[in-house]
Simulated assay, not measured.
Amino acid sequence: MHPAPTPSKALIRQPALCNWLDLSRSGLDKLRKKDPTFPKPLKDGDSRQAAAFYVVAEVEAWLQAKIAKRDEAA
């Protein structure tokens, strides 16, 4: 059985993204600061504690670009 396709505008919460990328929260923060091409989060409110969501399609596109760049260098 094949998994259902991910909708292109699906959102993922920051903790789930950390799990997916195998990063700690601070590791994700460092990645965001170091790589300006990393997708920006959507905040669910103005407070600092508001949940942060990422667009799955943007993260997947970022990953594909990183893989393509790696493959070009090889």
Results as ranks from 00 to 15, higher is better:
7 P>L: 04
36 P>W: 03
44 D>G: 08
20 W>D: 08
25 R>A: 12
41 P>V: 03
41 P>Y: 06
30 K>V: 15
27 G>K: 02
65 A>T: 10
36 P>S: 15
46 D>E: 13
61 A>V: 09
33 K>F: 13
15 P>I: 09
57 A>W: 00
72 E>F: 12
55 V>H: 00
43 K>C: 03
58 E>N: 06
33 K>I: 06
28 L>E: 03
65 A>D: 12
5 P>M: 06
40 K>R: 15
37 T>F: 15
45 G>C: 03
50 A>M: 07
38 F>S: 00
19 N>Y: 11
56 V>C: 02
54 Y>E: 00
18 C>A: 10
42 L>E: 08
8 S>Q: 10
35 D>Y: 05
39 P>V: 00
17 L>G: 01
58 E>W: 03
29 D>P: 07
11 L>M: 04
29 D>K: 04
61 A>C: 10
54 Y>A: 00
9 K>F: 10
12 I>C: 03
37 T>C: 15
47 S>G: 12
43 K>S: 07
44 D>E: 09
20 W>N: 13
24 S>W: 04
7 P>K: 00
33 K>T: 15
42 L>G: 13
18 C>P: 04
61 A>N: 13
66 K>S: 07
30 K>G: 14
23 L>Q: 01
26 S>K: 09
30 K>H: 11
5 P>S: 13
22 D>F: 07
16 A>L: 09
